[in-house]
Design a protein around this nucleic acid. Structure first.
Length: 573
DNA sequence: GCCGTTTTCGGCCCGACTGTTTTCAGTCG
């Protein structure tokens, strides 16, 4: 089994963790972390590149040494350096660094001073009051350790974007009404529209930071004030969501938005560019010595470091800076480009609304078409249609279309991909449909080889236009099925089969990296909601954000085409 | 350990807040 990129990245991250506890050169630690990030963001399998004899040191942050180590991992599945380090540093110390406020230095100091060997022993020591006896530690840190270990709070919890929105939007509106606040916006991964966010970063412009923050920490939903200064505060809401509020002067707005939108890696790259130009970039502005030369707007900041404005969704240090430099940033797809939705359900299967209601909702959104893709017969629990039911639905759709002007319901189906990769309906029946989406809804536990073959076989059926929610993952709830995505994408390209980007915020499947991989291979993406009600069509914006994070342009998306162009494309299968 | 308009050495992003100590290292974002 080839080694996955994520496995190589994890090994490097683990090495970095262990080196950090050993108090190794911090730039060496950073080198391992940077390399891990680079590897994680590659859309192609690193293992394949090694097999093909490619020079990995061409990749950013991978030099001769790390290229050699990657080759070794690909060959043997192991890295001797990691084995050595693991023998020298107790894993429990690394685990202890996940306690908020405890980093590598303090974790190691504690374990050495108290002769600890496990987190359980650390919990006992905190309970017995021995932590506060260690030099440099006091009662507060001891209480923090005790509480964190009691709650098993590793600080790792992430919130789905749509869930975070429910808390974030009312909160930022409330902050805007605080006296002295000129404006306030949410920055961070929320603004970059990541599928999950770890915390909310809210930026407010105002002069009297102390007073604004006093009001902020007084908000009803604040459960705990983690830190509170004159310009910055961190609180935990009752929901468990952490919120950072940062107050800056109005003149620094653009620089601060840039800074707090991140990502961290994108910021570091930006500050390096500033340095190269003998400037200094921080959240207050871009400075030439003591003089601020930019900072009002993000555009101005980018401009002065020689770049066009870069959309927040691209700010992940995945090549956007080089692309911006060369004037090769993608023309990102936008909501207005969409002409329809290619996956939704009616009350004929497990949807809530009738065909007519779904059609009217789609017209209200300004769409030219909507594909009705109810479940096939295998999906009994979801009211899957029998052959006869689908037959009747095709007729109903044809009758409805008679009444529409400039709009069309597409007769479709979300047909089940069975365990062996065959489909739940006959080719003859599928042949009568405008659009066929084929999806996996069962046997999630097959191994990677079988699962991949299963999808490949489904794609070989020329009646299949789109593979629905390809990995089947549900964010925070269910891992996706084991798939060799590169084989899937290559085959999709060969077959002319599209892959779906499912806009449901629980799915967002494909991921951003997979979107980009697909586009790089020329595979078209169906950007669809999988709506089960008229309201569900509104989820399209989450899928749009994900598509943009995947660098997709309108041409990469199937349903930016009008019906005649789309039907011509579909007929080519 | 990586990188290079100062290219094989000597740099490596920047600032706020906390806890513990009394001037700052560590941690975090």
């Amino acid at each position: 089994m080839p080694v996955h990129n994520s496995e190589i990245a994890s090994i490097f991250d683990h090495v970095a963790d262990l080196l950090e506890v050993q108090d190794a050169n911090r730039f060496r630690v950073r080198a391992y972390r940077n390399a891990a990030a680079t590897i994680r963001d590659q859309s192609r399998a690193i293992a394949d590149r090694v097999e093909e004899g490619e020079d990995l040191s061409d990749l950013p942050d991978i030099g001769e040494d790390l290229a050699g180590k990657i080759a070794e991992i690909v060959r043997t599945g192991e890295l001797p350096l990691l084995e050595d380090l693991s023998g020298e540093v107790p894993e429990a110390i690394v685990e202890a660094t996940r306690i908020p406020g405890i980093g590598p230095k303090r974790a190691r100091a504690l374990f050495e001073a108290l002769g600890l060997a496990s987190l359980d022993e650390l919990a006992e020591a905190a309970e017995a009051g021995r932590v506060a006896d260690v030099d440099g530690f006091g009662d507060k840190t001891q209480a923090r350790i005790r509480d964190a270990l009691e709650e098993k709070d590793t600080g790792e919890r992430r919130f789905r974007l749509d869930v975070a929105e429910d808390f974030a939007e009312p909160l930022v509106k409330w902050i805007r009404r605080i006296d002295g606040v000129d404006k306030a916006e949410i920055a961070g991964s929320y603004r970059r529209r990541k599928e999950t966010v770890g915390d909310l970063d809210i930026l407010a412009a105002g002069e009297d930071g102390g007073a604004i923050i006093d009001r902020f920490v007084d908000h009803d939903e604040v459960e705990e004030v983690i830190s509170q200064g004159k310009t910055r505060s961190t609180v935990r809401l009752r929901s468990g969501l952490n919120v950072d509020l940062r107050v800056i002067p109005k003149a620094s707005w653009g620089a601060a938005m840039h800074y707090f939108t991140g990502s961290r890696a994108h910021n570091i790259a930006g500050r390096r560019r500033a340095q190269d130009r003998d400037l200094k970039l921080n959240e207050y502005g871009l400075f030439d010595g003591e003089t601020r030369v930019a900072g009002d707007t993000e555009e101005e900041v980018y401009d002065r470091i020689g770049l066009p404005w870069i959309a927040p969704v691209l700010r992940e240090d995945r090549g956007e800076i080089t692309a911006a430099e060369k004037g090769e940033l993608p023309a990102l797809v936008k909501l207005d480009d969409l002409k329809g939705d290619l996956h939704c359900h009616s009350d004929a299967s497990d949807g809530k609304n009738t065909l007519r209601e779904m059609a009217e909702a789609a017209q209200e959104r300004g769409y030219d078409y909507l594909a009705i893709t109810d479940h096939s017969k295998r999906q009994t629990q979801a009211g899957g249609l029998s052959e006869g039911d689908l037959d009747a639905q095709i007729e109903s759709i044809a009758a409805l279309n008679e009444r529409f002007d400039g709009f069309r319901l597409l007769a479709g189906c979300e047909v089940d991909i069975l365990e062996d990769g065959t489909l739940d309906f006959s080719d003859d029946l599928l042949d009568r449909l405008d659009l066929v989406v084929a999806s996996v809804h069962s046997h999630f536990d097959l191994d990677e080889e079988d699962q991949t073959e299963r999808i490949l076989r489904a794609m070989e059926n020329a009646h299949v236009h789109v593979i629905g929610h390809t990995t089947g993952r549900q964010i925070g709830q269910r891992k996706g099925i084991a798939l060799d995505m590169e084989r899937i994408v290559k085959s999709a390209a060969d077959q002319g089969c599209a892959l779906e980007l499912n806009a449901n915020p629980i799915r967002l499947d494909l991921s951003d990296v997979h979107c980009r991989m697909a586009a790089d291979h020329g595979v078209k993406i169906a950007l669809s909601t999988d709506a089960h009600s008229t309201g569900g069509l509104g989820n399209i914006r989450y899928g749009m954000d994900q598509a943009r994070r995947g660098w997709l342009s309108a041409d990469d998306i199937l349903n930016t085409r009008g019906w005649s162009a789309l039907s011509a494309l579909l007929a080519r299968r």
